[in-house]
């Protein structure tokens, strides 16, 4: 197999994010600050293999074939989706696929609905931030607090 171009494979940034699938939606949670992302449309169907390093071009080709959609269109939309999640630090470029990655399981005739993501910050509404420590710049805490 020829080398894939840089940026062709991705993995989930597990030091900051975790993801779970619920029926027709994947939730990606920033475990440090509670911001979460809802991935819908055709994204849930490709999420598991995508974050295990399956090549983006292979994912796009599979989706296009299964849904009977122009591969250039799917490829462009998937690239934009991946770039957006990379910019959010959710996806990290990978050198290779995981040893055992989930197979793409889109059935023939599947509807193609694009790759949709929405960002939510519900936790901000719940957080009552503790007061910042009154740290004495000279003495530090607890001596100056």
């Amino acid at each position: 197999m020829p080398d894939q171009p840089v940026g062709e494979r991705y993995i989930l940034n597990q030091s900051e994010f975790a993801s779970e699938r619920f029926d027709d939606e994947v939730i990606v949670l920033n475990t440090a600050n509670g911001t979460y992302y809802a991935l819908t449309g055709s994204a849930p169907q490709i999420w598991a293999p995508l974050i295990q390093g399956t090549a983006v071009s292979a994912v796009a080709a599979h989706v296009a074939e299964a849904a009977g959609v122009d591969v250039a269109r799917v490829s462009g939309e998937l690239s934009a989706f991946v770039a957006a999640l990379e910019a959010e630090n959710i996806l990290l470029a990978a050198d290779s696929a995981a040893k055992q990655s989930e197979a793409l399981d889109l059935a023939a005739g599947a509807d193609y609905q694009g790759f949709v993501w929405d960002k939510h910050a519900d936790l901000d509404e719940l957080l009552v931030l503790d007061p910042i420590h009154e740290v004495d710049p000279q003495k530090g805490w607890p001596h100056g607090g």
Binding site: I132, V135, H143
Partner: peptide
């Protein structure tokens, strides 16, 4: 140990 503001 002296804790600084951005340790918290």
């Amino acid at each position: 140990l002296t804790l600084e503001k951005n340790d918290f």
